[in-house]
């Protein structure tokens, strides 16, 4: 690939100096970020976007774009973006969070932002584990899945976040995408941001994403995508809510 090819493969708002990215080989995050970047490009929002990234693997996204960015921890990216949006309603506020940040330690922020119909966009990457900290159990870990803090298999309970948000907020934009359907994912994220642009309130996209490292499928790409598309997508349906 020459420079021109590389440039064309990435969104305009991506920061090429930071490529290759710092995520692990095979990670799903760059796919989500690419979709987000293209959505921002298509809407022409690079100069208006306040991008909040949370701790965990999502924080590596700090380096990915040329966007005004802030990095916080523990799902607090959501209230940070809420506060920012209230003070500057012209900004487009995107909180980029992992499933641990949004559904466990920051669940109160996530859920209440949805209940109050805050006019921000939240993108949550669901890879069924706490990836950055070493593969511990998340609220999204599938039953029986063996992870660092559930070596004998995770319990039977897990979080259906889009379903939950739909329950507490009938007008929010809610969808679940998957890294392997790029075109669909880009469309979902674009619609979510458009929802914010239109001043309609809370928009939320959960993205099913692969973590070969913690799934221990690093050298078995087929196993990675089987788990993502067959196991995860079965428990977490990919669709609009």
């Amino acid at each position: 690939m020459n420079d021109q090819d590389i440039k064309l493969a990435f969104p305009k708002c991506a920061r090429l100096a930071s490529k290759p990215h710092k995520f692990c080989p095979g990670c799903g995050h760059p796919e989500v970020l690419k979709a987000l970047g293209f959505a921002i490009d298509e809407l022409g929002l690079q100069k208006k976007t306040a991008f909040g990234v949370d701790i965990g693997c999502s924080l590596l996204a700090w380096n990915y774009f040329n966007l005004d960015s802030i990095e916080t921890h523990h799902g607090r990216t959501i209230p940070t973006m809420v506060g920012f949006k209230k003070a500057n309603p012209d900004a487009i506020c995107v909180a980029y969070v992992g499933d641990g940040g949004a559904y466990a330690i920051g669940a109160g922020h996530f859920l209440n932002a949805a209940i109050r119909n805050e006019n921000i966009t939240v993108i949550v990457v669901n890879n069924a584990v706490y990836a950055m900290t070493g593969g511990q159990e998340a609220p999204t870990t599938l039953p029986g899945m063996k992870v660092a803090t559930a070596p004998c298999g995770a319990d039977q309970y897990y979080m259906h976040a889009p379903e939950l948000v739909r329950n507490v907020n009938p007008t929010a934009f809610v969808a679940r995408g998957i890294t392997t359907i790029q075109v669909g994912l880009r469309k979902m994220i674009k619609e979510a941001i458009q929802h914010q642009l239109d001043g309609k309130g809370f928009s939320f996209v959960e993205v099913l994403s692969q973590c070969p490292l913690n799934w221990k499928t690093m050298d078995k790409p087929q196993a990675t995508f089987d788990f993502l598309e067959k196991e995860m997508a079965k428990t977490y349906p990919v669709k609009y809510y």
């Binding site: 209230p79 940070t80 506060g83 949006k85």
Partner: peptide, 12 residues
């Protein structure tokens, strides 16, 4: 949440 919203408001 309030503390981080406050940070957001100041960042703006």
């Amino acid at each position: 949440g309030a503390g981080f919203m406050l940070i957001g408001g100041v960042l703006a």
